[in-house]
Each structure stands twice: as C-alpha cells, then as structure tokens.
C-alpha cells in the first residue's frame, strides 16, 4: 500500500469533512437566522400542454371514489374500462372524489388553481354531489322535516350552480355528466316520503344542469327503484359492484364520439 494513497485519501476526507461542516453550519444558520421570503402563489394556471389522449376528470363524493365496490373501481372505473375498450386513444383519469364531500366543499375544491387546471384540460367531467347534503349519512331519516330539507336544498342548489359556473369558466367545451341521486332507503318505513324528497331534489338539480350548455343530468333513481337491496353495499347506502355497473352503463350510453 502506497503512502501517497493514504495521504491523498486523508486529504480528500479532510475536504469533505470541511464541506459537510459548512453544510451543517448553513443548516443551523438558516434555521436560526434565516428570514422567510414571500413566495408568490401560482395564480395563473400554466398552459395546457399538448396532450394526446382523452382526459377525464371525476369530481364529487364517495360515489366518485367508488366506496362500496369490492373491486374498488366505482362507476368511474367501470366507465373508464368501457371507454378504453372503445377508443384507441390513451385515456387519462384524474379522480378527485373525496369521501363524504358535500357541495360546499366541492365548491371550494373547484376553485383551487390546480383543480381548475385539471378541469381545463379535460375532455369530459363527471360529477357526483349532493348525496351527503341530503342524506347526511342516513341522518335525514331521523329528523325528517320538510322545512329543514328545503333550506339544505337551497344552499345545495346554490353551490351546484356555482360549481357548474366554475367548470364552464375553466372549460367551455367539455361534456359534463352530473349523476343524480337514487334513494337507498326506498325499502325502509319512511322510504316513500324519502323518495318524494329525492325526486324533487333530482328535479331541481336537473333544472340547474339544464341551464348550462353541455351539462347532462344523468338520472339513477329509476335504476335503484325496484331491487334496491341487490344493488347496495352492506352499509345499505353506497352501491355495490352491480350498482356501480348500472350507473356506469347509463353514463356510457350517453357518451358521444
């Protein structure tokens, strides 16, 4: 072993030792004495890049997420599979669904810069919202008071309008499919009263959708009307795989190429 080898290794080690020491000093100095700087928020949405494929954005609540589906796909997943079977273009999905989301929080979400950008580059937007506003996870069954529901619905419709406006503002061209509500409680004691409320709710939602170009209201009430328990997950609230398939098929039938 050469003495010079040892000497040069030692030398290199000393240099690195100093370098790391500087790094440490810097880190500590930055921590104690560093001043925060104002970092500008990215206000302008960056340019939509050239994209080759079909871009789909899904917004909404647990239905968008696919809660209850054993395969984990949800109606969005099933729909995407179907689209993939029909087109050669690559399909890109951005699923922004959040479990338990209500209209007011979706209203906030669509205002986010990045979400706006996602919508902007979308060819198709899928929306499910309102289920949590209305049912509040089954709580609606307990305090069934028409007065209460009316105020809730008013707020909801207001939010929905805003959401659609926001989507259209970001993207005037894309088809928007808004999935209506079904009544998961149709078989229960108060099912019939509940159905009435849901129908009314759906009607008003469809009205709002209709006031925007290319926003299509997709009814699901009828799908779950007859054999609701066959299509519900064990929580008796979310659809199961079969239920999701029904919804997906309905949306698929509306797609235009």
């Amino acid at each position: 072993m050469n003495k010079n080898v040892i000497r040069s290794i030692t030398g290199i080690a000393v240099l690195f030792c100093l370098l790391w020491l500087i790094g440490l000093g810097w880190a500590v100095g930055e921590y104690y004495a560093g001043t925060p700087e104002k970092i500008p928020k990215a206000k302008t949405v960056s340019q939509v890049e050239n994209k080759k494929g079909l871009t789909i954005v899904a917004l909404g609540d647990s239905l968008t997420r696919g809660t209850g589906d054993e395969t984990g796909k949800g109606y969005v997943g099933v729909l995407i599979d179907e689209i993939k079977g029909k087109t050669k273009r690559p399909v890109q999905l951005t699923n922004l669904g959040i479990n338990g989301q209500r209209s007011n929080s979706l209203r906030k979400q669509v205002q986010e810069t990045e979400v706006g950008r996602q919508i902007q580059r979308a060819d198709m937007v899928l929306v499910t919202i309102g289920g949590n506003d209305l049912f509040r996870g089954g709580q609606a069954l307990m305090d069934f008071k028409t007065g209460d529901i009316a105020t809730i619905e008013k707020k909801y419709l207001n939010n929905l309008k805003f959401i659609f406006e926001q989507i259209r503002k970001n993207n005037p061209k894309a088809n928007v499919f808004f999935i209506g509500l079904y009544n998961p409680f149709i078989d229960l004691d108060q099912g019939r009263e509940m159905s009435k409320v849901v129908r009314h709710w759906n009607y008003d939602s469809a009205e709002v959708s209709a006031s925007f170009p290319k926003i299509v209201f997709v009814p699901t009430f009828d799908l779950f009307e007859l054999k609701v328990n066959d299509y519900l997950y064990s929580d008796k609230f979310h659809p199961n795989s079969k239920g999701y398939r029904l919804i997906a098929e309905r949306v698929a039938s509306l797609l235009t190429w």
Binding site: L19, W20, L21, I22, G23, L24, G25, W26, A27, E30, G34, T35, P36, E37, I39
Partner: peptide, 22 residues
C-alpha cells in the same frame, strides 16, 4: 407556512449532508 423559504436544491442538499454528517 409563515416562515417558508425557497431555495435551490443544491443548497438544500448541502444542508442535508451537513445534518447527516452531524
């Protein structure tokens, strides 16, 4: 997030190295 700073990755890395060294 009131004290957030922006820096180049090289500087951040050097600090990381310093901390790892310590």
């Amino acid at each position: 997030t009131s004290e957030v700073k922006l820096m180049g990755q090289w500087k951040f890395l050097l600090m990381d190295f310093g901390l790892v060294w310590f």
